[in-house]
Nucleic acid binder design. Sequence first.
DNA 1: TTCCTCGTTGAAAGCGCTTACAAATCTGTT
DNA 2: AACAGATTTGTAAGCGCTTTCAACGAGGAA
Lengths: 350, 350
Amino acid sequence: MATSSGHPTRHPAGATIYSVAERAGVSIASVSRVLQGSQAVSEKTRKRVLEAAEELRYVPLAAARSLAVRHHEAHGLVLPELSGPYYSELLMGFEYRAAELGQSVVLMLAEGKADLPRAVRKLATRVDGLAMLGSSAIPDETVTALGGSKPVVLIAGDESADVDTVRSENTSSAREITEHVLRHGRRRVLFVGDPASGPDIRDRYAGFVAAHAAAGIVAAEAVPVALREDDGTALADRLLRGDLEADALVCANDELALAVMVRLRGSVLRVPEDVAVVGWDDVMTARYVEPGLTTVRQPVRELGARASDLLHERITGSAAPRGAQIIPTHLVIRASCGCPPPPVAVRAQP
Amino acid sequence: MATSSGHPTRHPAGATIYSVAERAGVSIASVSRVLQGSQAVSEKTRKRVLEAAEELRYVPLAAARSLAVRHHEAHGLVLPELSGPYYSELLMGFEYRAAELGQSVVLMLAEGKADLPRAVRKLATRVDGLAMLGSSAIPDETVTALGGSKPVVLIAGDESADVDTVRSENTSSAREITEHVLRHGRRRVLFVGDPASGPDIRDRYAGFVAAHAAAGIVAAEAVPVALREDDGTALADRLLRGDLEADALVCANDELALAVMVRLRGSVLRVPEDVAVVGWDDVMTARYVEPGLTTVRQPVRELGARASDLLHERITGSAAPRGAQIIPTHLVIRASCGCPPPPVAVRAQP
DNA sequence: TTCCTCGTTGAAAGCGCTTACAAATCTGTT
DNA sequence: AACAGATTTGTAAGCGCTTTCAACGAGGAA
């Protein structure tokens, strides 16, 4: 092959559909046809085109195609960040489904972006529709403005008339896990997490309250903390100092619960004897700690997949009904709630 | 505003630069100029254009711009998948840096893709360059072929003449952690992981061997297992059955190490008394288990950022030298190696 | 007043691809 | 041999944007 000399790998100007056509001795239309897999091409031309493309290392320019066909074949996704398994799982579910649908995914992480609305608008520029996490801190007006020009689905965000939403079930599983704790005879149970921080936590707190109501107990106010490890550690300290009193903690996520457990380890307050601790998400660590963390598993991957699906439906124009899609969750009982630990090593499920 | 009726949010055909120009009473050239922030526009035009764009909810079509300027302003990234913190961190580092450089990132997950080379080629179609993880199982010829047409950087992959590589330091930290274990008096230490699975593990094993050589001991053969939890559990079972004998395990990653520790918990073999266990990566769980896991922290985020940087340099044509970029790592000593645990709760670092 | 300069604008030519549409070629019939 | 129909091919018109280049207009200097 008579490539250039000198530098080992200079990136050549790049073959175009024209150079391929020329080399194959056909028209660009034919090249396009074989590359798109159209039926209407003779075996002979197909072969020649494929060879020419190969020889020239032809890489089509998606932009040109997008312009011609007038869509991007790409889904946008906005996540706050990627620490912890939640967002990763979501992203995996989203990417796999998108790929199945033949869509690329262009990803944007919101945290730390100076001008978020601007970043989102830029993203919107290169996708057919975009999904974003409710917790990404995108201003409402940006969301609705975008929703006006292309499909937008909000994941675990506030329901709104302007955009689609998907979320996992919260209220009834929160009620379920709270009832489970109450059934262990706990009476001073605290909800740890800030209901004002978003619909997810708000709904979980609602379930917490409902469980109390059903048991004829009055639910305590939520302890409004953020969802990071540090907040859990601080909370454990408040417990140890006696600032807070509780015989059970229903934490809004696992990181919080785990941080509390670790801080309490070796202190006067034993888990679960003195204080039961339950969480939400079923992260990997939940089954590694001693005692195993009782928690609610969310099908986060499924959530991501549904978001991509919904986006695709909207883009291709299927007249799907607008309204929140709810994905079911389920309880994972381990030992931190007071249940006896399993006989052998700590394994989550088959 | 006189939008359509009927459906609450039908997505209109979409404003173009023409409609904006018309509404603003200027030419499309002027619209383009103000939208690109060119200096040569009067304040009056700027204002009118901005208003018109706003009113029409104008969202430019990136594809058209890309076609005109002949680059995508996007970096591609191929990862095997996203479980565990390693890939997520990498992705975060990559995304943040890319964003700083004004580039979008389009992400592809390799695992489960039926026709990987095809998927990668499709990705190449819409980015200016792409980074991929060495462990993504992309066939070598695909990589080099791609490397021939646009910049490619391999992350933690085999060094090659055709593409750039970035990786974290392995050999000498492996030697360091192994020496640490040997200094605890262990003499039957096993390396758990498959050196043939890629350059990372291969180099770690090399460090393991070097440490032994320096101590005048002959290093045991590597125990070639994959890096998942299950493999760790199975390995622990072999230890318990007596199939394998060891007083220390240098595991190729934390997941492996953690799985071993959990399986051994409550058995006759105590960690670290009977068998020390150390890992690699410093995942979150490493500081939650009892005893805390001694491990090597890789600056994974930095790795991602460097990949994006390198890509950018190549794309914009800076004549950077080709060759592997190496990011340093460092040891995190906790208790699983036999060191005394810290006095209070288990915290990694300030 | 005239000429020149400078800042601002618009016309128009592409960027590389898809896709009607029409032309050309190839079947098989009659 | 001539023709209808089916296949295969090429021509050319966009897709929406950037950018060159020339034209325009407003001052300022002469």
